[in-house]
């Protein structure tokens, strides 16, 4: 990422303005052209510096209040296959392998968001059926203390 790209991210990471030409407004405060700004955002997407350029949703405020972290105890030799299968579920937004540690045996983590806890439980049951992993738990979030996303 070069200096200009960094400036663009810093100026847009809290949200672009709700004006008819938001990219022109951003460009003029950076001394760039609107085309520069758009081209560089597209280039950063292509390079994978930004995953997407779009809206972050306040999902709780619109009723998507069930947020389950599903933790799975997957035999080490099956992690690759099981992780790929879990990731293929549309309802799974995140899927990570993490280390086990003393007193902690769960090594795969998936996030599922939906309108109700029952929806999340149903998704987890389908994942369990598809992967054969029976040792799992759902940890529902009861309070959100912080959610900011990654910032520069």
């Amino acid at each position: 990422m070069d200096e200009t790209e960094e400036k663009i991210i810093k100026l847009t990471q809290n949200g672009i303005p709700l004006t008819p030409s938001p990219f022109r407004d951003i460009a003029s405060s950076l001394g760039l052209t609107e085309e520069d700004v758009v081209t560089r955002i597209e280039a950063m997407q292509d390079k994978g510096i930004i995953r997407r350029f779009g809206a972050s949703i306040g999902h709780r405020d619109i009723g998507i209040i069930a947020n389950a972290m599903c933790i799975w105890n997957v035999p080490d030799g099956q992690v690759e296959d099981v992780g790929s299968t879990m990731a293929s579920f549309e309802e799974v937004t995140h899927c990570y392998e993490r280390p086990r540690c003393p007193g902690w045996e769960y090594n795969l983590f998936t996030m599922v968001h939906s309108y109700t806890r029952e929806d999340c439980e149903e998704v987890a049951a389908r994942i369990s059926q598809a992967t054969g992993i029976m040792d799992y738990r759902l940890l529902f979030s009861e309070r959100e203390f912080k959610k900011t996303g990654i910032r520069l």
Partner: peptide
């Protein structure tokens, strides 16, 4: 009202 928190870049931590 909070349905949209922002419209902007979602940064890929791994790439930076």
């Amino acid at each position: 009202e909070g349905a949209v928190r922002k419209i902007g870049p979602v940064i890929n931590r791994n790439s930076i």
